[in-house]
């Protein structure tokens, strides 16, 4: 296993993250997020490096990471589409729209497109129920979805 190196900018950010907490293990989720936003994935090497930085075992890091759904240990597409299918969205037709989206991307739900541009996941409630049906593409929320709107959104992403 090769050694994971944080970039200079990341080091700066790590320092400011650590400054927030009296105990450094609190920085675990923020550091995992930091790594994932840079690499789109959290590699075993990164887990070792984060563990070392925070004085916890790599197994502990993996244990925590695997508890949360937002971390990926396998590479995902440039655009991560999280499609809400929970109750308010379901009532507003999300199942069909999700199917439509999958067809549009020519993948199954849970898969990544061949060009590694899109990954499509079913997602539980994202707290935008009054805009149901909705989806989150990377950090952006898109509500009041229709088939046309989905097509437009996907086509507008490059």
């Amino acid at each position: 296993m090769s050694e994971y190196k944080f970039s200079e900018d990341q080091e700066k950010e790590i320092a400011s993250i650590l400054a927030k907490y009296p105990f450094k293990t609190s920085a675990l989720l923020p550091l995992l997020t930091l790594v994932q936003r840079a690499d789109q994935v959290v590699s075993p090497e990164a887990m070792v490096a984060i563990g070392k930085r925070l004085d916890v075992s790599p197994a502990y890091v993996q244990s925590v990471l695997s508890f949360y759904t937002m971390y990926h240990t396998e590479k995902v597409g440039k655009y991560m589409i999280l499609f809400c299918i929970n109750i308010s969205c379901q009532l507003n037709g999300s199942d069909k729209l999700l199917e439509h989206t999958a067809k549009k991307l020519n993948i199954k739900v849970g898969e990544t497109t061949f060009d590694e541009k899109f990954t499509l996941h079913r997602e539980e409630c994202l707290a935008a129920c009054t805009e149901a049906p909705m989806m989150r593409v990377n950090d952006t929320y898109y509500g009041d979805l229709t088939e046309q709107r989905i097509d437009q959104i996907i086509d507008s992403l490059d």
Partner: peptide, 9 residues
């Protein structure tokens, strides 16, 4: 030692 852990949920 935190060697053995629970993974996933």
């Amino acid at each position: 030692g935190q060697g053995l852990v629970m993974l996933n949920r």
